[in-house]
Nucleic acid binder design. Structure first.
Lengths: 157, 157
DNA sequence: GTAAGTGAAAGTCAAAGAAAGTCAAAGTAA
DNA sequence: TTACTTTGACTTTCTTTGACTTTCACTTAC
């Protein structure tokens, strides 16, 4: 018996397939209704199947007219995607800067974008325990790369 | 299903676009009538979408011949430092996005920079305890704003 | 002319409504 | 047993509505 979560996962993936955008928007309650399950089941599927390391970014809003937006990072063989998988679960500030410099050298980002990206990797500013900084930094860097990757894709087919 | 507030927001923004001044004047009741909503809905939109940190100033007068004047105020670098002190020690994702949208609207940053900045604020990706997210977010946003402000300084005069 | 009254605005605030989020307990499968 | 799923009660956030208040320009009474 297929798991409900798997069915929902497939359903969402087919929605993304069919969309001509790189993202879809759903209503949590509607979806829960279709599958006749608790709304929080949807959150579970999103957390386990559509997280960053699976190549997705989730954005949402509560209240009237609320929504959940599921953004798929293009999985191609380009620089960006490779970098993202290269980075792994943790990274030092200096290594992070190297990645950013590489993008800059190849003119994939502007100087200001590079500066912006480096600013958040700054060891000094991250308000978490020392040992967690490389982890947080890796996540921040990856989410920025994912965003850029989306953005570059849009631009030049 | 677009939110009423968003429709009203867009409507007001297009009015400002079309005007050749940096402000427009509306009648609250007329506008409420166009959108078939409670007049106080207009106040809600003004408070949430056209406030100071969004780069707008509201002036109004009650009584017969009353009006609401919405002024789009030119935003510049020194304004960014004001933003930074406005933010305080913690901020929600949606408020953070508003700050970024303001910079974009006033052409201080590019769309890609905005996307980059927003990606880092994403509630879902921050790998810290729930209650710490607004704190981390505030730090990240402020450091990015500081970087930008620095960058803008260098560039023009 | 001034004061009081009148109606036409806009303002305030709190309650109701509409989503989504969280968390932990209970259920299942490997 | 252990890890993964499902469920549901409760919370938080954002929006919409409406009753009530305040302010202002204009009349009317004196």
């Amino acid at each position: 018996m297929a798991r409900l979560s798997d069915l929902i996962e497939d359903f969402i993936k087919s929605l993304i397939e069919d969309a001509d955008k790189e993202y879809i928007e759903i209503k949590r309650n509607e979806l829960a209704n279709i599958f006749n399950c608790a709304p929080s089941q949807i959150n579970y599927v999103l957390e386990t199947r559509f997280n960053l390391s699976n190549g997705y970014i989730i954005e949402s809003r509560r209240g009237g007219g609320g929504y959940i937006k599921i953004i798929k990072r293009p999985v191609s063989k380009d620089w960006m995607s490779k970098m993202i998988s290269d980075i792994g679960d943790n990274i030092t500030e200096s290594k992070g800067r190297l990645y950013i410099d590489t993008l800059l050298e190849h003119s994939l980002i502007t100087g200001r974008e590079a500066a912006l990206m480096k600013s958040v990797l700054n060891e000094k500013i991250l308000p978490v325990a020392q040992y967690k900084k490389p982890i947080l930094r890796a996540i921040l860097l990856k989410v920025m790369l994912a965003e850029l990757s989306n953005n570059l894709m849009k631009r030049s087919d």
